[in-house]
């Protein structure tokens, strides 16, 4: 199983919850705080953090495609 992250950018509300949970995978743009995906296909060691980040995203903007 591997995982791909899809960020629905217009939905992002710049909360930064994902950055707090998974700082190696997400960051935020300086100008408006919108999330940036640093690693769209994170390794297995990061999958728990990424799932948590998707779950706590207040805008439901992080979609995980597992395959």
């Amino acid at each position: 199983m591997s995982m791909r992250i899809e960020l629905d950018e217009p939905k992002c509300v710049a909360a930064g919850q994902c950055v707090m949970v998974a700082p190696d995978v997400f960051d935020q743009r300086d100008e408006d705080g919108v999330a940036i995906v640093l690693d769209a296909e994170p390794g297995p060691e990061q999958e728990d953090e990424v799932r948590e980040a998707a779950a706590v995203c207040p805008a439901a903007a992080i979609k995980l495609v597992e395959r």
Binding site: A14, G16, V19, M20, Q28, R29, D30, E31, G33
Partner: peptide, 10 residues
């Protein structure tokens, strides 16, 4: 405010 200005407070 930019995210980095907020993050320190968080």
């Amino acid at each position: 405010m930019p995210p980095k200005a907020i993050r320190a407070w968080r």
